[in-house]
Computed example of a mutant assay.
Amino acid sequence: MAERLRTGIDVLDRKLDGGIPAGSIVSLQAAPASQAELFLYELTATRGTLYLSLDRSEDAVAASVRGSTTRTGEPTVRHVNGDAPLDNATKLVSALPDASNLIIDPVDVLEQQEAPRYRNFLNELQNHIYNTGSLAVLHGLNGREVAPLRDTTLHMSDVVFDLETEVNGDRIENRLTVPKFRGGVAVPEVIKLELGEGVAIDTSRDIA
């Protein structure tokens, strides 16, 4: 079995038989108003991380990571801006060292570029992540408008995490599904999570 890389979220790593196979691309889908960033922040505690921000500034992301209530590392944060985000992201990714994490947050900006160029970016990313034994997480926003090339991202990704957040009565409920898992078995059940001081299983019981 391929080496497994921990996500930093203990309950999820147990469900995934130790983590995600090295060399994988993960697509994390979540609503913009959710606490999905906690997944990204906990990942930074597992190994060296390059955090590419497509929206927020480097200072804003770094401050958010430092102020997080969950476990974090000290990621290298870079803001990808300009008129050629695919080219700028490619240059940064090419320098990713072995056994590292790459976070692209959000990937939506890249999904709005020309389809052939975006597919080429994903193919080059896949090769580099595989050759370095690293782990890439592409954070996609499932908001009112979904980026036009989201299906391409999901198809090219090795693993898909789908986080749904909804208000149920007086509680906010977060449900994680793993419908796709190349190199392993997709988790068959929905995982109910508590997103607060870290990411943990929600042990509360539904009241009929």
Rank of each mutant, 00 (worst) to 15 (best):
L12W: 02
D10M: 07
I25V: 14
L86S: 06
Y118F: 15
L40Y: 02
A62M: 07
I129S: 06
P106S: 15
V109C: 00
T44V: 06
I25T: 09
S94M: 11
Y41P: 00
T72S: 14
L40I: 03
A99N: 13
T46N: 03
V109Y: 06
A33T: 13
R71A: 13
T44L: 10
Y41A: 08
D55S: 12
A45P: 09
A36D: 11
L16K: 03
L125Q: 01
N127V: 14
D108T: 06
V107M: 06
Y41K: 07
Q126D: 11
V77M: 03
A84Q: 15
I104P: 01
N81L: 12
D98F: 11
L28G: 05
A63E: 15
V137E: 04
P85N: 00
G73L: 03
A89G: 08
P85L: 02
A115M: 14
S27A: 15
T132S: 13
P106Q: 03
R66Q: 13
E74D: 13
P85F: 02
A63W: 11
G82C: 08
S64H: 15
T69K: 15
A22H: 13
L16E: 07
N81E: 13
D17K: 03
D105S: 04
G18N: 00
N81K: 14
A62R: 14
R78F: 07
N127S: 15
G48W: 08
N127G: 12
D13G: 03
L135M: 09
A62P: 08
R14E: 14
D55F: 12
T76P: 01
N81G: 10
L135F: 05
L12G: 07
I25M: 07
S64N: 15
P32R: 04
T90Q: 12
S68N: 05
A36M: 02
L12D: 02
I20K: 00
L52K: 00
I104H: 08
Y51G: 00
I20P: 07
V137P: 01
S24G: 09
E37K: 07
N127W: 12
P116E: 10
D59P: 04
G133E: 03
D87N: 11
L92R: 01
L54G: 11
A95C: 12
V61D: 09
A115I: 10
A33D: 15
Y118G: 06
G18I: 05
L16W: 10
A99G: 11
G23L: 09
S134K: 00
G48T: 10
T90H: 00
P116C: 09
A99K: 15
D17F: 09
K91C: 08
D17I: 11
G82D: 07
I9A: 05
A31M: 14
Q35S: 13
L135A: 07
P21F: 11
T44D: 02
A30K: 05
R119I: 09
